[in-house]
């Protein structure tokens, strides 16, 4: 097949451009990291009740009260944005979790920590209505928990 010269040049050029773009793309840290990201725990994020969630996340590890601090407002005017701070002074925390009893799905966020990180996490969450919020810190042999009741004036499900 004899392509007209102009068309051939165009095609050759766009092909090269694509190859260059793909090559550059592969070197970007976003995609490099994306390949090593652990899979999102879909099952945990679809659990409705916090007790089932505890069991699913931590299995038979003993859950004890205290050792973790949850800083949450007593009353949230706007349920769409409720600031939460989890902190702990426990040595070597492995995972932090934040759950809301009366949300459609209990688990809000699950944080995996490495030894580079301190036991601290600050996030803003949505709350559909007044509910107990639970913070968890998982260490090598047990799970520490604390809960706070947060009153919500305007629900955040309407986002």
């Amino acid at each position: 097949m004899n392509l007209p010269r102009r068309t051939f040049l165009k095609q050759a050029f766009s092909g090269t451009a694509l190859a260059v773009a793909a090559g550059a793309g592969l070197l970007r840290p976003t995609q490099a990291l994306a390949r090593t990201w652990p899979t999102w725990p879909a099952q945990s994020f679809h659990i409705k009740h916090w007790r089932d969630l505890e069991h699913s996340l931590f299995g038979s590890k003993p859950v004890v009260s205290g050792g973790v601090h949850l800083h949450a407002p007593l009353e949230a005017e706007n349920g769409a944005v409720v600031p939460m701070v989890i902190s702990t002074k426990l040595a070597a925390p492995k995972r932090l979790a934040l759950a809301v009893d009366h949300n459609p799905y209990a688990l809000a966020t699950l944080v995996n920590l490495t030894p580079h990180a301190l036991g601290f996490f600050n996030v803003r969450i949505k709350m559909g209505k007044t509910s107990r919020v639970r913070a968890y810190v998982e260490t090598a042999d047990r799970v520490h928990t604390v809960d706070r009741l947060v009153k919500v004036t305007i629900g955040g499900c309407g986002g």
Partner: peptide, 8 residues
């Protein structure tokens, strides 16, 4: 950090 739909 793994997030669900409850994050603002």
């Amino acid at each position: 950090t793994d997030m669900g739909i409850a994050v603002s």
